[in-house]
Structures are given as C-alpha cells and as structure tokens.
Amino acid sequence: MDLSTQYLGFDLPHPFMPGASPYAYELDTIKQLEDAGASAIVMHSLFEEQIVREEMATMQSLEAPAESFAEALSYFPETDTFRLGPDEYIEHLAKVKQAVSVPVIGSLNGTTLGGWLKYAQLIAEAGADALELNIYQLATDAQISGEQIEKTTVEIVAAVKEKVNLPVAVKLSPFYSSLANFAGHLDSIAVDALVLFNRFYQPDIDVQALEVRRELKLSDPSELLLRLRWLAILSGNEHQYALAVSGGVHSGLDAVKAVMTGADAVQIVSAVLRKGAGELTRIRTETEQWLEDNEYESLQQMKGSMDLSRSPDASAYERANYVQILQSWDGLAD
C-alpha cells in the first residue's frame, strides 16, 4: 500500500512520526522510534523560559552563598565546562541528526523575539532538517487582545522564517477566536505546516490540601474529535501549508480519520509514551490494513476526502452538535 505523503518539503514513505515529547530525550529511545519506522523525528521542545530560569537560578545558587564566609568562598567545584543555556539541547539534537537517517524536526518554544530567533538559528546550525515552532502560550494578560497575540505570533514566525533557511511548522493551540482567519495569516507568510494542536499541561486541584497539582495527562482518542473538525475546516479552506495532527491518534482508524480530514502528517505521542515505540508500527500497520480492507489505492486517495470542501455533510463541521441533533427531529424547520 502506498502510504507516501509530503510534509515540510520531505517526501515521506508514510505520515507516522512521533510528536514532540520526552521520548526524544535519549538517543536510545530515538533509535527505537526510527527502528519502529518513524518517518521523521520531532524533537522535544527547547523552552526559552526554562533555559533562562535555570540559568538565573543556578547562578543564584552558585553565587549567592559564595564570597561571604571566610572558610567557604564557594560551595561547588569550579568547572570551565559546566554550561547553562541551550547547549545541552543543541548538542543532543546534533547527535540525533548523526544517529538517524530520517528527517529531524527541531522544536522550539520561545518567550521573547530575541529568544525565538537565537534558538531557531542554533537549532538550524545543529543540523535540524525543519523546525516546529511550539506556540505554547496562555493568554492570561487581560490587557492584550486576541488580535495583538495573533499579530505578534505572525511576526515571530515571519522573523524566524527569514532567519533560518528551513521549513517551518507552527504548532497551535485550539484557543483562537478565529482560527481559520489566523491560519490564513500564517499561510500568507508561507508557513510550511500547521500542527493541530498542542496540549497544555492541565493542572488539577487537590481539594484537601487546597493546592494545584501539576501533572501531564496523556491523551485519549476523545481528543481527536476537536482536531478532526479543525483539520477539516483548515484543509477545506484555500491554503499552501501542510497539516499535521497531534493529539488523540491511538489507532489506525484514528489516523484514517485524521488523514481523511486533511492531515499530511500524523504525530503520535501518548500511545508511544504509554506502550513504547512499537505503537508507531502498530498504528501504521492498522492504517495500511484498513486501506487495503477498504480497497483504497493509496493514502493520498483519501487525504482530505472528508474536509470542509469535500465532505458530503460539510455543515456538520460548522455547527454546534446539539443543533444537529435538534435538527434531526421531525417537524422542526431549519
């Protein structure tokens, strides 16, 4: 079965790749992903905020107690080679690039324009084949309008695209008031792909201790539905970018749905984190089997078949579901 697809300018044998996750921390597990047939490797994100915080906190912990007390002018060994900053990530990425033969996509979350540009360039220099910009930002400031946020994001993406000569994907959250319009802006600056969607850490509450508990909940297939809808809408609109689905694909059938709604690439994280790299193989095999069982000629044949422009019941994507159900009652006019 021909599963080939195009994503970020690469001709890939199939769309299945790991999404950004801790699975990319170690070379060993990355090799497992490649062995499981990943068509590309998306690295975990380099977080500018984390780098800056760690730099400042480490310097504080090294320097604040130093040179205060005559017997202990310092508390840690002096090592020239001890480096803070992005080097760890960058060096790791370079090693990953050496170790695997599939395309390597660096992932970045910046907090300042300077940071986006600096780290994007470092990732490019380390040999990444493409860059995924992880727009992981909670709009908590009541003074900043949605328009401003979108404008700033478009400016950052444009600046990064100008700085690095790499295909650039933008990983978005679903929380935009007009995602289709925003996607259009990104399209106008020739973004190479959109990844739908990133998943925020969702804090839980300990009601006894009255504390917020931070934890990473892995996805389940129910999360796919939101993505299918937006894949269908964006795929159905005029666009140049490729689309990737991220979040909620746990089986071949999930992948089929994502591709039918327009996904060029299928990123898998939670299944891999739960059960290992072999999940990539399983989902690919299931997809292949489904295509064969249903007598498709290729993956390409079904790509976008259920998007907004081609779906037989396109309005289903545009309306809230309960209207749809009400509509099905006899005797009620539209």
Binding site: E55, M59, T81, R83, G85
Partner: peptide, 12 residues
C-alpha cells in the same frame, strides 16, 4: 565570567 554559563546572565 559568564559567557559559557549562559547568555541571559551576560545580557542582564
């Protein structure tokens, strides 16, 4: 002093 330890510290 700080160059290798991190650019942010240098900038600040």
């Amino acid at each position: 002093t700080y160059g290798r330890k991190g650019d942010e510290i240098v900038q600040r």
